[in-house]
């Protein structure tokens, strides 16, 4: 295989969001096509360098092809990220000026953070860097954006009348979109390398995103309740971390068990996790 053709194919495959194995398959398939074209051009009498350049130029623009493959593999994901980016940027400016012109308060750090996260999402949607742990970076950005949007919703309480309610509703819709993207990224778009475990990987990840949202919410609620009804001088607040820690540990256990092929035990931990969280919620609603 000619190194220049292999590099070209690799660049294209890196522009897709598949697993390392999927990218490697894609890369080999494209390199095979390029090699066949190269051989034909050599037979036609071109020099090796001419044949390489011609094979690549006839294949097409690498970035465009990478984007097209990405769109075919993960339909509407780019549009969803673009929507979240544009919506978040508009939401940021609308909230900033609404609060500024009604309460005369300028939340400049928040606006800058909102613009930075919105811009990062825009850059990732339009021209994602080839070398990036996308699952980690994207999920991190979606969660950060959720935090920024939540704080923006809090700021809308300073805006009187319907304008504040409309802005808050827009913020919640954007959070819904960010959560949908977290589900896609965690459970659907990025899959295990082992085809046999693919559907189990998707099911367990989907369940864990849900239980993760619930567990972190429970932890935050307990922390808020503790701070609201105590003087906050002891370390009892650390108990609030138990639901989130329980979720993180059980998620890690499921992931390790699945990687070792122990599917039933992994599902057992998933069931235990769901049962404990359901019991905690049932207890809470019974008390309240």
């Amino acid at each position: 295989m000619r190194p220049a053709l292999l590099r070209f194919a690799r660049e294209i495959s890196r522009r897709t969001d598949g697993t390392r194995m999927e990218r490697q398959d894609l890369e080999e398939e494209m390199a095979g096509h390029l090699e066949a074209t190269f051989s034909r051009l050599i037979e036609e009498g071109h020099t090796e360098q001419e044949a390489e350049e011609l094979a690549m130029s006839r294949f097409g623009d690498g970035k465009r092809i990478g984007r097209q493959i990405q769109q075919a593999l993960y339909p509407y994901r780019r549009e969803m990220i673009l929507g979240l980016s544009a919506g978040s940027l508009l939401f940021g400016f609308a909230v900033f000026f609404s609060v500024l012109l009604t309460a005369w308060s300028a939340y400049i750090p928040w606006l800058i953070l909102c613009s930075l996260t919105g811009s990062a999402l825009l850059a990732l949607a339009v021209d994602p860097p080839a070398s990036l742990n996308r699952r980690f970076v994207l999920n991190g950005l979606f969660l950060l954006q959720t935090g920024v949007l939540l704080s923006g919703i809090l700021l809308t309480s300073a805006v009187p009348g319907n304008a504040g309610s409309i802005l808050a509703m827009a913020g919640w819709l954007l959070i819904l979109l960010a959560m949908a993207l977290v589900y896609r990224t965690s459970a659907y778009d990025y899959r295990t390398r082992r085809v046999r475990l693919e559907k189990h990987d998707m099911a367990i990840n989907a369940a864990n995103v849900t239980t993760g949202i619930l567990s972190v919410s429970i932890s935050l609620f307990i922390l808020w309740a503790y701070l609201a009804f105590s003087d906050g001088t002891d370390r009892v607040w650390m108990f609030a971390l138990i639901p989130a820690l329980f979720w993180a540990l059980t998620y890690a256990a499921q992931w390790l068990l699945l990687a070792k092929g122990r599917v039933k035990t992994a599902y057992g931990i998933t069931g235990l996790q769901i049962a404990v969280i359901a019991a905690a919620l049932a207890l809470f609603f019974r008390i309240t």
Binding site: L89, F93, F97, A106, S115, L122
Partner: peptide, 24 residues
């Protein structure tokens, strides 16, 4: 186009921050 979009977002943010400082 992405570079232009990012520059515009940065400029709009800077202008908004300046307006915030002036009006708050």
């Amino acid at each position: 186009p992405l570079l232009i979009a990012l520059i515009l977002i940065g400029a709009a943010t800077a202008a908004s921050a300046a307006a915030g400082l002036a009006l708050q």
